[in-house]
């Protein structure tokens, strides 16, 4: 029985691991911390798994536990300095056609997003993952209206960074 559960959980996580990797990318600066956070999220997901009874999609439930771990439970082991190799892999711009202006803009934006506070980052992350405001609000525990207001503020902040 337990073996079944383990197998089922690991299979589902293996399929959906991109979500966790993306959270780690936003909240950490180097590969060690990335792996650290990934592991902590995996432990928390596994601990919560018996309580997840398929009421929502596995991925929806994952967003919540992963972000909660990043915002609340995860302790950075040390002050991490962004390492060049990590940056270049994680933030390699993936434009189909090379467009220097666009690339410059994206770089600036990724930088700006990573400098946001933990909670703002979570908001942007869910937005980038194409979640609607209802889901964003429910995940963070704020009202839908306030999620919208806050997101607009972040958008304006990014705009000023790009067009000083």
């Amino acid at each position: 029985m337990t073996k079944d559960l383990e197998h089922q959980f690991v299979t589902e996580l293996e399929h959906n691991q991109n979500i966790v990797h993306k959270v780690c990318t936003l909240y950490t600066n180097d590969r060690d911390s990335h792996n650290d956070l990934f592991q902590e999220i995996t432990i928390q997901l596994w601990k919560a798994y018996p309580k997840f009874r398929g009421e929502s999609k596995f991925s929806t439930w994952m967003y919540r536990v992963a972000l909660n771990t990043a915002i609340t439970l995860y302790r950075k082991s040390k002050k991490s300095i962004p390492t060049q190799d990590y940056e270049s892999v994680m933030f390699k711009i993936t434009a189909d056609e090379y467009d220097p202006t666009e690339e410059q803009q994206l770089k600036l934006m990724y930088n700006a997003v990573r400098q946001l506070g933990d909670v703002d980052k979570a908001l942007v992350f869910l937005y980038l993952e194409d979640k609607d405001y209802r889901e964003i609000a429910e995940t963070l525990g704020i009202t839908e209206v306030n999620a919208r207001v806050k997101m607009n503020r972040i958008k304006n902040k990014l705009k000023t960074i790009l067009n000083p």
Binding site: E6, F9, V10, T11, L13, E14, Q17, N18, H21, K22, T25, H34, F38, Q39, T42, I43, W46, V89, M90, K92, I93, T94, A95, E102, Q105, L106, M109, Y110, V113, Y127, L128, E129, D130, K155, L158, K159, L162
Partner: peptide, 28 residues
């Protein structure tokens, strides 16, 4: 601008690390 970022973000999957079943199994 954010739409631009969103489009790029959603194409990121290919660049992310991929862990195997066994690696994840060990983690739990």
């Amino acid at each position: 601008e954010l739409e631009l970022l969103k489009r790029d973000w959603q194409k990121k999957d290919k660049q992310l690390p991929q862990l195997s079943f066994d690696e994840i199994y060990k983690m739990i």
